[in-house]
């Protein structure tokens, strides 16, 4: 069991990285990756929301959707978004420090495709509660890893003599492509074992 959980974690973290292998959550990856500090906080918010998503998706699948499977997509979106809003209010009341650290990113991230993707993938793979949470940790960690790598490179590019034609979005997209190529090295890992 522990080995299986580790495999789920590493698979979501590196091999099937949500950002660099599945290309989910590209908008924050390109939009909020110009500073390391914000990128890290966005990543943490992502992990947080993903864990809530995993729990919510599991609860919906187990208790509600067995009676109405055709409601899956819409109920995932509504339930996840509202749960995160609710949790955000709870954090604001009980832990202002955490609220400040996660800041605006918490509501921003809820409607991201990576979040819905996580819920749908976890459902497709038939993960239980614990597996789902580990999967969310791995996937969120993978998104965070991609974000801070991207932010590190983009901070570096600020002091470089980047030609005008590639400055800005073009550079971000090319760097994202290069990172994605580098992550191809993890493809197929552990599948033979």
């Amino acid at each position: 069991m522990a080995q299986e959980l580790l495999w789920i974690f590493i698979s979501a973290l590196l091999i099937n990285n949500f950002t660099l292998a599945y290309f989910l959550g590209i908008c924050p990856f390109l939009g909020v990756s110009n500073k390391l500090d914000t990128a890290l906080r966005l990543g943490l918010a992502n992990i947080f929301v993903m864990i809530i998503t995993a729990v919510a998706a599991w609860a919906l699948n187990t208790f509600v959707l067995i009676y109405a499977p055709y409601l899956r997509l819409i109920s995932f979106i509504i339930v996840i978004a509202s749960t995160v809003q609710f949790v955000e209010m709870a954090i604001k009341k009980w832990s202002p420090e955490l609220f400040k650290a996660l800041g605006i990113f918490l509501p921003l991230i809820t409607t991201n495709c990576a979040i819905l993707g996580l819920a749908l993938f976890a459902t497709n793979k038939g993960y239980g509660l614990i597996e789902g949470i580990v999967y969310a940790l791995g996937a969120g960690g993978g998104v965070t890893l991609a974000l801070i790598l991207m932010a590190g490179i983009r901070e570096e590019t600020r002091v470089l003599d980047i030609p005008d034609v590639v400055k800005g979005t073009a550079l971000s997209l090319i760097v994202a492509g290069i990172l994605s190529m580098a992550f191809m090295g993890f493809a197929g890992m552990f599948s033979a074992a």
Binding site: A182, M184, A193
Partner: peptide
């Protein structure tokens, strides 16, 4: 553990 026999290139790029 990877799917490819050689990983030096990817390791350095990463």
């Amino acid at each position: 553990w990877g799917g490819l026999p050689e990983g030096v290139m990817y390791a350095i790029l990463l």
